[in-house]
């Protein structure tokens, strides 16, 4: 059974670890693949022509190509223009949130500082993904 991957673009190792762990705890069976920077993700998707993931969890503040840059690139390319992108960041600045939606992100989630809340959010996201994002084969399983 070949489930589509979930891509996590996150420069912070701790965050990446926590995201993957909690997605698992939220019963997400898909493979979670982490990219440490926007450039690495773009390289995989466009230069290596990797398969499209089920969805992308994208951090905004990254050295090199930022989350905005990644989002812009995804939306500007036909192949990836409809790819679901969840922006996951610590920033709560309204202007930044608006900018993400303008660029076409599917959902914007702030990283709660409280551990339980962060875990809860990610797990909830995992459950949501189970419902909305699971393809046919998963349903038969």
């Amino acid at each position: 059974m070949n489930l589509q991957e979930i891509h996590v673009v996150e420069d912070d190792d701790g965050h990446a670890y926590l995201i993957e762990k909690n997605l698992r705890a939220g019963c997400v069976a898909n493979r979670v693949r982490r990219f440490a920077s926007g450039d690495e993700f773009l390289d995989h998707l466009f230069e290596q022509e990797g398969d499209l993931p089920l969805l992308v969890l994208l951090d905004l503040n990254m050295p090199g190509t930022s989350g905005y840059g990644v989002l812009q690139r995804l939306r500007a390319t036909a192949r990836t223009s409809n790819l679901p992108v969840l922006v996951l960041t610590t920033t709560e600045e309204p202007a930044e949130i608006q900018r993400c939606y303008d660029l076409g992100c599917s959902l914007y989630l702030t990283k709660p500082v409280q551990r339980e809340a962060f875990i809860e959010a990610l797990q909830a996201l995992g459950f949501v993904l189970q419902i909305v994002g699971t393809p046919e084969p998963k349903a038969s399983a």
Binding site: D12, G14, H15, L18, N61, P112, V113, Q114, R115, F118
Partner: peptide, 10 residues
């Protein structure tokens, strides 16, 4: 916040 989340979570 980023390191703080890590500190708290870990």
């Amino acid at each position: 916040k980023a390191p703080l989340i890590n500190l708290l979570s870990f």
